[in-house]
Structures are given as C-alpha cells and as structure tokens.
C-alpha cells in the first residue's frame, strides 16, 4: 500500500458528528466479548482482569467528556456534585446505552459515597452471572467510564462495580471534592 502524499483533511477540520449513528447491539456485544477475552489472556488473576477492564473503560470515558460536553452542554461543565451525577445518570447513560440508569442513591453511612444502580447493564446482558457473585463483574468497564468522566471533570472519585440488585456502581468521592461542594452550597 502506498502511503500517499495527498493533502489530508485533519480530523479537526471536519464537523463533529451528531452522534446519532447506530450499530447493532450484537456487534457491540461481540466486540465487548473480545475485549473481555483479550484482557483475560493478558491477566492471570481476576483482580488483574478487573483492572484492565476498568482502565479500558477509563480511556473511553476520557474521550467522552469532551465529546458530550461540547455536544450536549455547549462546552459548559458542571460544577455541582449532584449535577454531574445526574448528568451521568441521564444524559450520558441515554447517549451511550439508550436509557437512563435506574437509580441514584446517597449512602446512609458515608457522606462521600453514592450508588448508581442498574438491573442489567448492557455489557452483562449475555453473560451468565456466576453463582457466587463474588467474582468478575464485567460492568467494571462501565465503572471505569464513570470514574474517568467524574475525575476528568474535577470530581475525583473511585468507582467500582458490584453484584447487588443487578449491578451497583459505588462512587466514592475524594474528601476534598465533597468539602468543596459544601462550600459552594454555603455561598
């Protein structure tokens, strides 16, 4: 193949797509299946595999931030903690998965912790849930996306995925983030 010297339009010169393109769910399911298997081959333990899926999700998330804030919010970012969570629960979820996440809850025991719940995450739709439920949850990939979006917009947090009422994403914000949010409220 000849590497042509034709002048090439840079990707930045093209208009941003509307993001309305669709591909089949099966296509995504099978691609994700390969993602899991590739990651599995590269890992020797379940935690290692989880980390790999999480970090892949993280990379996806970091691309999404700019794309979605430019497209959906006129490039305006959220500054309130609750608003960014709602942005994830509704706007982001709808754009990526075609529906909102089912529930958002604030933890009773820990101020810094929130739970986002989803009965059947897209990535788990075809996966047989292991009986002990203690093991791999592939939705850790989505947890990576959430963590990346939160951290990238200035709400540093750790996000993990758990088998609980379907899948529950546990969002644990940094102390400093919650403190800052309180200050905003006081003003």
């Amino acid at each position: 193949m000849s590497l042509s010297n034709r002048p090439k339009t840079s990707i930045l010169d093209k208009p941003l797509s509307k993001g309305k393109g669709e591909v089949s769910l099966s296509c995504f399911a099978l691609l994700f299946s390969e993602v899991v298997q590739y990651s599995q081959n590269k890992s020797s333990t379940v935690p290692e595999l989880q980390n790999r899926l999480h970090s892949l999700g993280y990379n996806v998330g970091s691309k999404i931030i700019d794309l979605y804030f430019v497209r959906e919010r006129n490039a305006k970012r959220e500054i309130k903690l609750l608003n960014i969570l709602l942005f994830i629960k509704s706007t982001l979820w709808k754009a990526l998965f075609g529906r909102e996440a089912e529930k958002l809850e604030h933890s009773n025991d820990d101020e810094n912790t929130y739970y986002l719940m989803e009965k059947e995450p897209l990535v788990n739709k075809f996966i047989s849930v292991p009986r002990d439920k203690g093991s791999l949850n592939c939705a850790i990939f989505i947890a990576g996306i959430i963590e990346s979006v939160l951290t990238g917009t200035g709400f540093a947090a750790k996000v993990t995925a758990h088998w609980h009422k379907g899948t529950t994403y546990m969002v644990k914000f940094d102390e400093s983030v919650v403190a800052r949010d309180k200050q905003l409220e006081d003003k």
């Binding site: 993001g19 591909v23 089949s24 691609l31 993602v35 999404i64 075609g98 897209l122």
Partner: peptide, 9 residues
Amino acid sequence: VNSELVTLT
C-alpha cells in the same frame, strides 16, 4: 446501540 460506544470501545 450508539455507534460511538463501539467506536470508543
């Protein structure tokens, strides 16, 4: 599904 999910994944 949204094609961007596939693109980015």
